[in-house]
Design a protein around this nucleic acid. Structure first.
Length: 117
DNA sequence: GGTTTGACCATAA
DNA sequence: CTTATGGCCAAAC
């Protein structure tokens, strides 16, 4: 038996592809992206993939955690930038710095028409 | 090759 | 509300 690897090669490319499809003014969560890739457990690795991201085409700032909050741990500078960019796109932050996911969460089912690599 | 770490999540108290 | 705990998987040390 080969090792049961949940993450397949190209996982991070899939993450980028999905995140790239999130339109301005909408957000998604790590867990949702992970779930769409077949395994909700790998939510951490979605963040991991984005941490290694250098492609400016990928709107990494539209990915937040399941609590509707910006999730950066060691880099509050980028967290502030993330919030600034989201607000510039029309995403509204609560007084507690939370986003109403019920309202701004992007439904990936809308993009059946878009091809994945 | 075991231990630590990580842009997470859900649940419990 | 916050904090703690367990789970999960892979990469880095």
């Amino acid at each position: 038996m080969e090792t049961n690897r949940v993450l397949q090669p190209g996982f991070n490319a899939q993450v980028y592809a999905l995140v790239r499809q999130v339109p301005p003014g909408q957000v998604t969560t790590y867990g949702d992206v992970a779930g769409l890739l077949g395994a909700r457990r790998v939510a951490r690795h979605v963040g991991f993939a984005l941490a290694a991201l250098t492609d400016p085409e990928v709107p990494w700032h539209r990915v937040i955690n399941a609590q509707g909050r910006v999730s950066f741990k060691g880099d509050p500078v980028r967290a502030g930038e993330q919030r600034r960019r989201l607000e510039a796109e029309g995403v509204v932050f609560d007084a507690t710095e939370r986003v109403n996911l019920s309202k701004f969460r992007w439904d990936f089912k809308n993009l059946e028409l878009l091809p994945l690599p």
